[in-house]
Design a binder for these strands. Structure first.
Lengths: 337, 337
DNA sequence: TTGAAAGCGATACCAC
DNA sequence: GTGGTATCGCTTTCAA
């Protein structure tokens, strides 16, 4: 180590050790330009002996490119974002990009700063996977960085997006419930500003149920309400209104509901049928048996990456909005009636 | 926008617009040094009008600090890593750091390059959450970057680590099985080089069971084997050896097993009891009812961050190894016998 | 309090 | 083929 304690070796250290100029080192290590075999060998040896790792900041500063896509996720512990993350990472690496992920810790302010952090790193492209941050905040960077919104319908004219068709999904799972013969159904709904997508799908469920002549009870499932309170409402509506099925906007909420309902001596699916939404592993599993709508996560992730990379490599490529359909997964939490 | 199309405004653009020098802008925006109120106001206005976001590369290049912790996770779709991610993000932000996450896509080679990518970004610290990458590969960077291994016991002298006490955990869950009266038990085991931690916990289970006089059938659960094959082995050993309980090294594997066992007409827990390991939400849920060992994810994540930040801010702070105990979560997949 | 100037570590365009 | 030099955007002395 040449520099002060704790500092990393630079291209100059490598050059000195190899007995060549730093230009030569740069050429060899980046594989551009010409150099002799001997130069290559000496440089490579020196670099590996020194444990040299090029400084991406310096490199990005001059080249203006980082070959990195920044991904903003809403909640690192959500399975949906998690699944998206994995898919995107894979696709990006196929295309020669690296993905770095950051997340707000739930608050809008944090997400803004997380997004700014990504921008400050000068990632080549941005994929936003969060139904929290308003489109305007995201669009602010769009003129300067290729930006795609994934997993949420966002028809902003400056932002491309890929998402599950929530209206179709909500309608289909509602059809499954209606087809099973339920005539009085509770739908858990979150406020629009809690989560756009969840709101949209619940609305679609309500609408389709009504159009099929099903009586609908709308229940408040705001994020701030403890699952126990929601379960209490559900238990009450079962007793009072004769509800025989409950539709949830996410599998996660469905799980919490199934869990807490037991405290009210309500068993799923014995006493009431329940459906979810997302269909992401590991909850989407035959043994668990959730009846749910599976989002096309694989395609969403893949196409989101394809869209950003497309825009990175050709900034003139048009904004696109891709709506992808999910499919109903039948399970044992929905019983015919 | 001053520069060429698509480029971001620089400190010079802000300076020009505010009618001050770039030094002044730098001082105001980073809040260091002295400046008049008027200067501050003009700079702030110019910056926000331009949508200026400082270039972290340029900044980091000169300051030598990024205030960023790089996190390497093995598998972005694993719930354990995902949970760790969320915890770390939260703790880091409390301490004034940002976390960026990368992941290999499963192969050792990819993890090495993902780690190198983090190093090349010159993150201030590294948290490695992967049982895949050999310690030597990780340790290579340790002299120059504060490095902590989380979620896996790593006693390498250059690396701090925080992890769940696998031996204790394996023994405790094994005790639960033995206490329930099972006398012939199958333990699913993965090869050591598939996953150190999983290997360790399975070994601990086997050992404890044997020491309690339980007959143990060791079953191969290599990552490469399809769950159906594993389930077939389990079904066979139930029929042939009279196994009444199966212990799995992860909840995930447990779930796959429960699922595929049904194809062999083996019901859980009716025909056989099953236990898992990890206890991470959402699978750790009363309704699902897994009997498992809950890892202290919250503490692991928090302490990992505390350790890296400690070493970032005081490089002379000693290497530490913290072993944290988990606890058994009773569930309905383990029946007394 | 302010601005000019010197780098940080790499790349790229030069002559040689 | 090779090495010098300007340059990327910013922070940080250092004079003024």
């Amino acid at each position: 180590m040449t520099g002060p304690r704790g500092s990393q070796p630079t291209i100059l250290d490598v050059a000195a050790r190899a007995g060549v100029s730093k230009s030569a080192v740069s050429r060899v290590l980046s594989g551009t330009g010409r150099f002799s075999d001997e130069t290559r060998e000496r440089v490579e040896r020196a670099a590996s002996e020194l444990g040299y790792v090029a400084n991406a900041m310096a490199r990005g500063l001059v080249s203006g490119r980082t070959h990195t896509i920044g991904m903003l996720v809403r909640d690192a512990s959500s399975m949906v974002y998690t699944a998206l993350h994995a898919v995107m990472e894979r696709r990006a690496s196929e295309l020669g990009y690296r993905v770095v992920t950051t997340t707000g810790v739930g608050r809008v302010e944090d997400e803004k700063s997380a997004l700014a952090a990504l921008v400050s790193m000068r990632v080549d492209g941005l994929v936003v996977c969060s139904g929290l941050l308003p489109a305007a905040e995201i669009a602010e960077f769009a003129p300067r960085i290729a930006t795609v919104v994934a997993g949420r319908p966002e028809l902003h004219p400056a932002l491309s997006s890929v998402y599950c068709d929530e209206a179709d999904g909500g309608a289909r799972i509602a059809d499954a419930v209606a087809d099973a013969g339920h005539t009085t159904v509770a739908v858990l709904t979150v406020p629009q500003d809690n989560a756009l997508t969840q709101y949209a799908r619940s609305q679609a469920m309500v609408e389709r149920l009504r159009s099929r002549g099903v009586r609908v009870v709308d229940l408040d499932a705001s994020f701030v309400r403890p699952p126990a309170d929601i379960a209490a409402d559900v238990a009450e509506t079962i007793a009072r209104d004769g509800v025989t099925a409950v539709m949830c906007p996410t599998d996660r909420l469905m799980l919490d509901l199934c869990d807490t309902l037991r405290r009210f001596d309500v068993e799923v699916p014995g006493d009431v049928s329940v459906t979810g939404f997302d269909g992401v592993s590991p909850l989407a599993n035959d043994w668990i048996g959730f009846t749910t709508l599976e989002q096309p996560i694989e395609r969403i992730g893949r196409e989101a990456i394809d869209l950003v990379v497309g825009r990175i490599e050709d900034p003139s490529s048009p904004v696109e909005h891709r709506s992808l359909r999910g499919r109903v997964i039948p399970g044992r939490t929905l019983l015919p009636r």
